[in-house]
């Protein structure tokens, strides 16, 4: 049972980590928390599900388009909700982000209705035995895909010119400009990447829970925010670590304490971290 809960936790945790990466990257470069990250996650899921429901789009294309739509939504959101508010008190863009989140949720409710949509295609996932322990291939696939996306992001940030330019902007905006880096373009790129990852996370959860609905991004969004804080907001490895830890803590807590506390555990961790180690496990921007 412990092993099964660990796998459950790692699966949801890897999805939290993907969303947390969006929070942490945007915080790193702009110093603001994009509370509409959960809605970007929802957007990715809806686009993929609606495309698959037509029966004319293959799965991988639907995933790519879902991620693309989420990325586009993120870039547009930055343009209309954050860029005009640059230079204002930090509470102002925060309120704007919450407003964007409510707006997108209501819009989805209006367009798609309140009901859960099942995932349009069935997969032949089974349970296999690894070293005498039962493992669901669905969970393994989600975990592998999430870790794969994280790996791609890390490679991008560490080894490409644009990745380094994003880090430079996060560390020191003025000096980055002196290098000839167009900060606005890097901010857009950050929103694009972070939102694409959130979109991918949304699609994974749409498959995992077999449910897509307008408010689906609310709790994962808040939990991923807690995960980003836990890991150290602004730090990419921190977001991954925070997401995985939070997922496992939640899953073990639900199993060994009470499943009624499942959602509370993430926020209890958030409060504890803010009280005891507000900088998170790994500190800092630009990692």
């Amino acid at each position: 049972m412990f092993f099964q809960q660990l796998i459950n936790g790692l699966t949801t945790g890897s999805v939290y980590a993907l969303i947390a990466l969006g929070y942490t990257m945007i915080y790193g470069i702009l110093g603001l928390i994009n509370f509409a990250q959960g809605e970007i996650y929802m957007c990715g899921a809806f686009v993929a599900v609606l495309l698959l429901a037509t029966g004319k789009v293959n799965f991988f294309l639907a995933v790519a388009l879902g991620m693309g739509a989420a990325a586009l939504l993120g870039v547009i959101l930055e343009r209309v909700a954050f860029r005009p508010l640059r230079g204002f008190h930090p509470l102002v863009p925060l309120i704007s982000a919450i407003g964007a989140s409510i707006f997108l949720q209501s819009l989805a409710l209006l367009l798609f209705g309140p009901n859960d949509r099942p995932f349009p295609i069935q997969f032949a996932f089974t349970t296999i035995m690894i070293a005498g322990l039962p493992v669901s291939t669905l969970q393994m696939t989600i975990l592998a895909a999430a870790l794969g996306f994280m790996g791609l992001l890390i490679v991008f940030v560490r080894y490409t010119t644009y990745g380094k330019a994003i880090v430079a902007c996060a560390l020191d905006r003025d000096t980055a400009r002196l290098m000839g880096i167009n900060v606005d373009r890097m901010v857009s790129l950050t929103f694009l990447l972070g939102s694409a990852l959130s979109g991918a996370a949304g699609i994974m959860m749409a498959i995992y829970y077999n449910a897509t609905y307008p408010r689906m991004g609310l709790l994962p969004g808040l939990k991923a925010f807690s995960a980003a804080i836990l890991g150290g907001v602004g730090s990419i490895p921190g977001a991954i670590l925070g997401g995985l830890l939070l997922g496992v803590a939640e899953s073990l807590g639900a199993a060994y304490i009470s499943s009624g506390f499942k959602d509370a555990i993430a926020f209890a961790i958030l409060i504890l971290v803010l009280l005891l180690r507000p900088q998170g496990i790994l500190r800092g921007r630009g990692d």
Partner: peptide, 17 residues
């Protein structure tokens, strides 16, 4: 104002961005 967490080489490369 060097970019602290980036490597020395990455700093130099960004100079030619």
């Amino acid at each position: 104002r060097v970019f602290r967490t980036l490597s020395v080489t990455a700093n130099l490369e960004l100079g030619a961005y």
